[in-house]
C-alpha cells in the first residue's frame, strides 16, 4: 500500500487536480450559459412569458443536435472552432470549449424542465401583481425552481466528470487519462482501480451534497 502511494501518489494526485480543474472551470461556464438557455426555452414557448416561435424552434433544434452527439465526437467535430476560440486544441485550455458545448445544452434542457414544473398559476399571480417579466423570470421562477435546478446541476456536474475522462485524448490529463494510459495501455490494473475508486467517491460526494441542498430548498 505505502509502496503504491510512493510510486503513484503524485501521478494520481496531479490527475485528480486536473480533473477537478477541468470540471469546475467548465461547470461554472456551463452554468452561466446553460441556465439562460433553459430560461430562453421556457420563456419563448407558446405559453411562456414572451412566446416566440422562431426563437424557440431554432434553440430547441440546435440543442437537440448538440445533445445527440457523444462527447468524444463533439470534441473532434468542433476542433477548428476550439482552435479559434481558445488558441489551442490541446491541454486543459483546449478542452474547455468542447466540454461547455457538451454540458451547457444539457443544463439548459434540465433547467427547462425544472422551470416548467412551476405552477403556471403562480406565474399568473405575479403577473397580476404588476411585476415585470424579467423579475418574474429571475427572481420568482428561478427562485421557485432552485431546488430542482440544484438537482439538475448535480447531474450535469457528474456528467462533466465523465466527459473529462475523455479529455485525456487531447492531452488534458485527468483521472480518466491515467486510468486509460496505465490501466489499459501498460496493464497496471491497480492504478486503474485506484482512479476508479476516486471517481466513485467523487461522484458520491457530489450527489450527496446536491441531494442535501436540493432537499433543503424544496418545500413541497
Amino acid at each position: 500500500m505505502s509502496d503504491f502511494i510512493t510510486n503513484w501518489g503524485n501521478v494520481i494526485w496531479e490527475a485528480l487536480g486536473q480533473t477537478l480543474a477541468m470540471t469546475s472551470i467548465t461547470f461554472v461556464i456551463s452554468i452561466i450559459v446553460g441556465i439562460p438557455i433553459g430560461v430562453l426555452l421556457v420563456v419563448t414557448r407558446f405559453d411562456g412569458l414572451h412566446p416566440n416561435r422562431t426563437v424557440y424552434s431554432i434553440s430547441n433544434w440546435v440543442i437537440n443536435i448538440l445533445r445527440s452527439l457523444p462527447f468524444i465526437i463533439l470534441l473532434f467535430l468542433i476542433l477548428p472552432v476550439t482552435k479559434i476560440v481558445a488558441g489551442t486544441t490541446i491541454g486543459i485550455r483546449g478542452v474547455v470549449l468542447p466540454l461547455v458545448v457538451y454540458a451547457a445544452p444539457y443544463i439548459g434542457r434540465l433547467v427547462e424542465s425544472s422551470l416548467l414544473e412551476i405552477d403556471p398559476g403562480t406565474i399568473e399571480a405575479f403577473r397580476s401583481m404588476g411585476i415585470s417579466n424579467s423579475k418574474i423570470i429571475w427572481r420568482v421562477m428561478v427562485r421557485e425552481a432552485r431546488g430542482s435546478i440544484i438537482r439538475d446541476l448535480t447531474i450535469a456536474a457528474i456528467g462533466l466528470i465523465g466527459a473529462t475522462a475523455m479529455a485525456g485524448l487531447v492531452g488534458a490529463g485527468g483521472l480518466g487519462d491515467i486510468a486509460y494510459q496505465y490501466g489499459f495501455q501498460r496493464y497496471q490494473p491497480d492504478v486503474m482501480y485506484a482512479t476508479i475508486i476516486i471517481l466513485i467517491v467523487l461522484v458520491q460526494i457530489l450527489q450527496s451534497v446536491g441531494n442535501v441542498i436540493s432537499a433543503r430548498l424544496k418545500k413541497d
Partner: peptide
C-alpha cells in the same frame, strides 16, 4: 404594471410560492 399594483387578485388554486 402600475395599474395591476392597484388591483389585487386571488385564485381558486391560491398560487403561492411553494418554496417560500
Amino acid at each position: 404594471l402600475q395599474l395591476r399594483r392597484k388591483i389585487g387578485m386571488i385564485f381558486q388554486s391560491y398560487n403561492l410560492l411553494v418554496t417560500a
